[in-house]
């Protein structure tokens, strides 16, 4: 059995909750147990926002992750400072390096750190940073393989229903750019 616990954290509006939702959907469609547990309240309106996603082959205990995270995804510096210590031994820290820089000694020894220039990648590809969250999601899936890569397509069709289907191609592309960026960094 395996369990993946991932914290997505950033400012409200950066898309932390929706990237978590896409991942949770993909895992559910694979038949996994899933929980998607958001911070809620005023932070939805511009403060820090985070969501804890757990994917497992068996029943999920605490939906709140306070230790041994498989992966922490930091979309800004406050999130990095708040959650870097939560990564499990040998876990991954995926950082939007356009918005946050890891300080010396901030990550535990053995943590796999991925500095992804997600805003730049998104801006180069789409003329704006809006899809930086999907770039980051691609990097997360490469870094920790909580789902099969192809499952993300199924998730897109569920999350972007009806009129929103037109957003799928760009989201998919952003995801792939992030995935490939992490893969390059891992060489």
């Amino acid at each position: 059995m395996s369990t993946f616990s991932i914290i997505f954290a950033g400012f409200g509006g950066q898309g932390t909750q929706s990237m978590g939702k896409i991942l949770a959907y993909a895992a559910m469609l694979e038949g996994k147990e899933v929980s998607w547990c958001p911070s809620y309240g005023p932070e939805m309106r511009g403060g820090t926002s985070n969501v804890h996603v757990i994917i497992s082959d068996e029943g999920i205990g605490s939906p709140v992750i306070t230790k041994d995270a498989t992966c922490v995804v930091a979309l800004n510096k406050p999130s990095l400072d708040k959650f870097a210590h939560t990564v499990a031994d040998g876990g991954a820290l995926v950082i939007n390096s356009d918005l946050a820089e890891l300080e010396e000694g901030q990550a535990k020894a053995g943590t796999r750190v991925f500095n992804i220039p997600a805003n730049k990648i998104a801006t180069d590809a789409f003329g704006g940073s809006k899809l930086a969250n999907l770039v980051m999601l691609g990097a997360v899936v490469y870094a920790t393989s909580p789902i099969k890569v192809e499952s993300i397509d199924d998730a897109f069709t569920h999350v972007f229903e009806g009129g929103k289907a037109k957003f799928i191609p760009d989201n998919k592309k952003a995801f792939e750019l992030g995935f490939n960026c992490a893969k390059e960094l891992d060489k």
């Binding site: 939702k21 949770a24 559910m28 147990e33 899933v34 929980s35 998607w36 547990c37 958001p38 809620y40 999920i60 939906p63 709140v64």
Partner: peptide, 10 residues
């Protein structure tokens, strides 16, 4: 509680 209300699960 609020967590069960706010959280998503299948």
């Amino acid at each position: 509680d609020g967590l069960i209300g706010q959280m998503m699960e299948p």
